[in-house]
Amino acid sequence: MISKKSLAKIKVDDFFNNDNTLKGLGFDYQKLIALEKCLEAKKNEYIWIECKGDVADQDASIEVKHHNSKHNLISNSEDAWKTIKNYVENFHLAKTFNRLILHTTSSVPEDSIFCGWNGLTTAEKKNKLLEHVPSESIKEHHDKINACPSIDLQTILERFLIFSDQPKIAEKWPGSRYFCESFYGHPSPSKQLKSRNHSIPAVPQPS
């Protein structure tokens, strides 16, 4: 039987591709973003997890995408298209936020339609999306976005921002690459914290 000391030396890259540990790291990254929002929040402000986006405060709904290895947000990236589609399907909530953010560790290559996204006008964003010929992997998302009422899609796109090249969990949380097994002794630590549909009150600020 392998010892916990040996497990602690296993790198993330050593796990099987379908191992739940990587999914657990992704959810832990999401919780870390939520914790940062709590620490930044004003008194009596609330931070929501998994009910108004992955993470949300009173200003922004944030979809969090973590990739342990190098990853590019290409024109057919499901991360981007699914995020926009989710805002389309939940427009009644999306329209209540000033900003709709895709927070991702991915990089945006120059040949991607999402390159320079935050500097585009709403009309330019809309044209890039609707004129794009989707791959099969994102066609369902593209069709739903294309079917969205024009005024609703405009509202979403004028608020939708992409924060790319964000630090990975190992950079934000040193030692996390060994965290799952050495600390929890369990491959999916995210299962030990049930935070769905709950809001977290902001940390009280010192008076």
Rank of each mutant, 00 (worst) to 15 (best):
S3H: 12
K4I: 15
A8L: 07
A8N: 09
K9E: 10
F15M: 10
F15T: 10
F16L: 11
D19K: 10
N20T: 13
L22H: 10
L25T: 04
D28V: 14
Q30N: 07
K37T: 12
L39H: 09
A41D: 08
K42N: 14
K42W: 06
Y46T: 13
Y46N: 15
Y46E: 14
I47M: 06
I49F: 07
A56N: 00
S61A: 09
I62R: 07
K65R: 13
K70Y: 14
N72C: 11
S75T: 15
N76S: 13
S77H: 03
A80K: 04
N86D: 08
Y87C: 00
Y87V: 03
E89Q: 11
L93Q: 12
A94K: 03
A94L: 05
F97I: 01
F97L: 03
R99I: 07
T105Y: 02
S106H: 06
S112F: 03
S112D: 01
G116I: 04
L120W: 01
T122D: 01
K125M: 00
L129I: 15
L130H: 07
L130E: 04
L130W: 08
I138K: 00
C148I: 06
I151K: 15
L153W: 05
L157G: 06
L157P: 03
F160S: 02
I162C: 01
D165V: 03
W173L: 10
G175E: 00
S176H: 04
C180M: 07
Y184M: 04
P187R: 13
K191Y: 09
K194Y: 05
S195G: 12
R196Q: 08
R196Y: 08
S207I: 14
